[in-house]
């Protein structure tokens, strides 16, 4: 409950990052969306024991964070803070899969640990990629890209409305909860008896707000069709960005670079 403010702050902060100005920020959102999806598909397409093969993929978030001037520490913290389900399910791997896959002298590492590590790596990579997409592009621009890619109009439009009013409603919810908690002793969660009228009232107010918004729209000539101007342009940069990353991902997917590199190094050391 007490994290309502923090949550909307987080959204707002990512959106502020998206207002930044860098080569990457200026790219057409579509290019970034495609690259992100390519990246995620490439990462999750490895088999479950893939570990070293995943490491080269860190080049993507690292390059984007550096070039985009994003706060790496903040993003990392965010990624590490939210991983309950993946860890919860993944943690069973070491317990269930005890085949020794790697042997260092007398220490054997079970396949379960490797696949668990692999899950965590995948998690960090995919989640970071999604966060980077938003921080470089901004949610509204992502929606614009979705529209251009042929997502149904009503869906994208209500998505934009939704995003717009997240801030207003989380604010309102926070104020109501705060007012409630001043009058109760449990600060962690509101009581069930308070929760219902609180949420119900918020819902009623929301419905009234929807009415007022609709009215405001009508006042400005709304006829059931929402029009929006989005100037998007695919230039050379976009093509290079998207194709470049895509080829790199395919290459990294097909050839185990770290293994080759490692073999080279260990060979030399021997």
């Amino acid at each position: 409950m007490n994290n309502i403010g923090a949550n909307s702050f987080n959204i707002g902060y990512l959106d502020t990052l998206a207002c930044g100005d860098s080569v990457l920020h200026r790219l057409d959102p579509r290019a970034k969306l495609i690259a992100t999806l390519m990246f995620i598909v490439a990462v999750v397409s490895f088999d479950k024991y893939a570990l070293s093969q995943l490491t080269p993929f860190f080049i993507y978030p690292i390059v984007l964070i550096s070039l985009g001037g994003l706060p790496a520490g903040y993003l990392l913290k965010k990624v590490l803070l939210v991983s309950p389900f993946a860890i919860l399910v993944g943690i069973f791997n070491p317990l269930l899969d005890k085949e020794i896959l790697i042997q260092f002298g007398s220490i054997g590492i079970a396949g379960g640990w490797i696949s668990f590590m692999s899950i965590l790596l995948r998690f960090v990579l995919t989640v970071t990629a999604a966060l980077i997409l938003v921080s470089l592009t901004g949610f509204n621009a992502v929606c614009g890209a979705l529209l251009k890619f042929g997502m149904p109009r009503p869906f994208v439009m209500q998505l934009l409305f939704f995003y717009r009013y997240i801030f207003v409603l989380t604010d309102e919810a926070e104020r109501m909860v705060r007012a409630g908690s001043f009058r109760s002793f449990n600060s962690r969660a509101v009581g069930f008896k308070t929760f219902i009228p609180l949420t119900g009232t918020l819902l009623l107010r929301t419905l009234e707000r929807a009415e007022r918004i609709y009215h405001a729209m009508c006042c400005r000539g709304f006829d059931g069709h929402i029009r929006i101007i989005r100037a998007m342009k695919i230039r050379h940069q976009e093509i290079i960005f998207t194709l470049g990353w895509t080829f790199l991902f395919i290459w990294l997917r097909c050839y185990n670079i770290p293994l080759t590199l490692g073999a080279l190094i260990t060979g030399v050391l021997k």
Binding site: M1, N3, I4, N7, M157, Q158, L159, L160, F161, F162, Y163, R164, Y165, I166, V168, L169, T170, E172, A173, V177, R188, A189, V190, G191, F192, T194, F195, L198, T199, L202, L203, T206, L207, R209, A210, I213, Y214, M217
Partner: peptide, 18 residues
């Protein structure tokens, strides 16, 4: 617009723990 704000409502309401 109704869908949009109700989505925002669900989003906000999910943050209130009881």
């Amino acid at each position: 617009p109704l869908m949009g704000v109700l989505g925002a409502f669900i989003f906000a309401a999910q943050m209130i723990n009881f």
